[in-house]
């Protein structure tokens, strides 16, 4: 339902861009919206992929990989999409601060969790592994 909402909501913007022809002001304004939708979709893809990875991957270190890698990229993409929509510089500055702190603290926290798990004796799963079918999992 939400994906259909996204597509339906983006359609009038595209229709306006087609109708406006070569009016540069309208084109630039709609280009910002189109870039926002593109970055939002990219960021949501990475966030959802990371979540599904954390839920489905077999052992702790692979889950760490899914969460750590995709959370950073997805968060930065979504925050950049919001920066494109901001209408004054204070909001841009705050969003840049959020993006900077997420960019610094998320890999640090991931590394700390991995280091603590390794020191506590959590062993990675080695060898080949076949994912169970969805209905087999309790």
């Amino acid at each position: 339902m939400s994906l259909a909402t996204l597509i339906l909501a983006a359609e009038p913007v595209a229709a306006d861009a087609v109708r406006a022809g070569l009016d540069w002001a309208v084109l630039v304004e709609n280009a910002l919206d189109v870039f926002t939708v593109a970055f939002l979709l990219g960021g949501l893809f990475f966030v959802l992929a990371g979540s599904i990875g954390v839920l489905r991957l077999p052992d702790f270190y692979t889950r760490l990989h899914a969460a750590g890698v995709t959370d950073t990229l997805g968060a930065e993409l979504i925050l950049f999409a919001l920066i494109l929509q901001a209408d004054n510089w204070q909001v841009v500055a705050k969003l840049l601060m959020v993006a900077f702190f997420l960019f610094v603290t998320s890999p640090t926290a991931t590394h700390a969790v991995a280091h603590a798990a390794w020191r506590a004796g959590e062993k990675p799963r080695l060898g080949r592994w076949k994912a169970p079918a969805l209905e087999d999992e309790g």
């Binding site: 339902m1 939400s2 994906l3 909402t5 996204l6 339906l8 909501a9 983006a10 009038p12 913007v13 919206d33 926002t36 939708v37 939002l40 949501l44 966030v47 959802l48 979540s51 979504i78 929509q85």
Partner: peptide, 15 residues
């Protein structure tokens, strides 16, 4: 349309 797009984004984030 932008608030509706962001509403869809929040729904996916909740998922």
């Amino acid at each position: 349309p932008m608030p509706y797009i962001m509403l869809g984004a929040t729904l996916l984030l909740v998922v």
